[in-house]
Simulated assay, not measured.
Amino acid sequence: MKNIFSYNSDIDKNAYMNWRTNRFDHIHNMHVIAEGFMNSAISLAQTCLKDNRDKKADMLIFPILFNLNHGIEVYLKAMCWNLNQLLNKTETFESSHNLKSLLAATKKLTVDFDNRTEALQWSLRLEKYIDELYTKMETVKDNGKKVYDITFARYSLTRDLEPQFYITELNNVVIDLENFLQFFTEVYKDLDNMSSYLLDILDQRNELKSEMESEYYSNL
């Protein structure tokens, strides 16, 4: 068998990992990764909806949700980093998988950059999902502490080796794939449009800065 990291003579049968990425633009690269994870979740859901007579959705829902949540996480981190640069801050993004806190941080930076009410339009549908997700994930420890385990789509057990919420639930835990696809197609657009918009602003600012520096040194 040939190596996995190898060429096919038909370029349409190749996946180029560094075709869309940029060696010098790390925020752009995070956007590319986020886009890939979100797109894969939607594509898998579409595959299940086309034909689920073999009930493959019951297995594929786990990578669907993992890819979805990871895509959201990377979009938020890319946007945080971008906004911090636009606000002339040295921070990048919160080193966390906590979607609630990442969303809160991104919203705050968005308002710091643009205080118009419509500036947060991108976050409305996403916040609705994250609130619902955290309600589902919530478990209460013996000491009364509330815990939210975002690894539920990766493992059937929590970090404490306790069953995830869908294992212990007596009733079926169900996701309407038609509703999922309709809702997250819009969430994907919201995130991708906002992230792309911020990238464009940052690129324009960096280009202007480079032109001004070039002109300054040429006049010395």
Rank of each mutant, 00 (worst) to 15 (best):
C80G: 09
K107D: 00
L86N: 09
A57D: 15
A57I: 00
L86K: 14
M79Q: 07
E94H: 12
E35C: 00
C80H: 12
N69R: 12
K77E: 01
N98S: 08
Q46Y: 02
L65P: 02
Y75R: 09
V74I: 15
K50V: 06
P63G: 11
I64Y: 12
K108A: 14
L65F: 10
L99T: 01
D51Y: 10
S96N: 01
T106L: 02
S43N: 12
K100W: 14
D58C: 02
L68M: 13
A41D: 02
E73G: 13
A105L: 12
I72Y: 12
A105K: 03
M59F: 11
L60S: 05
D54K: 13
K50Q: 09
Y75N: 02
F66K: 10
E35P: 05
K107F: 06
P63S: 05
L49S: 09
S95E: 09
S43H: 01
L68A: 00
K108P: 08
A105V: 14
T90Q: 03
K77G: 08
A57H: 09
F66L: 14
L99Y: 09
S40M: 01
N84P: 01
L65T: 06
R53D: 06
H70D: 11
L49W: 08
E91K: 15
K55E: 11
N69F: 14
N67S: 13
G36M: 02
E73L: 14
F37Y: 14
L87I: 03
N52Q: 01
S43T: 05
K50A: 01
A78I: 00
S101C: 06
M59E: 06
K50L: 10
E73M: 12
S101T: 15
L65W: 12
A41L: 13
K77C: 02
E35V: 09
S95Y: 13
N88S: 14
A78L: 03
L76G: 00
A57Y: 03
L44Q: 12
N84S: 11
S95M: 15
A104Y: 05
C80K: 00
K55P: 13
L44R: 02
K108E: 13
I64A: 04
K89H: 12
N39S: 15
D58R: 03
M38C: 07
I72R: 13
H97R: 05
F66R: 13
T106G: 03
G36A: 07
A57W: 10
I61T: 09
T92G: 13
F62G: 05
W81C: 07
I42Y: 12
A41F: 11
R53G: 12
Q46W: 08
S95L: 14
G71H: 06
S96A: 11
N69C: 15
T92S: 15
N52L: 10
L87M: 09
A41N: 00
E91P: 10
K107P: 03
G71P: 07
L76E: 10
I61P: 03
S96Y: 14
Y75D: 10
R53S: 15
L87N: 02
E91G: 03
S43R: 11
F66W: 01
L109A: 03
V74F: 04
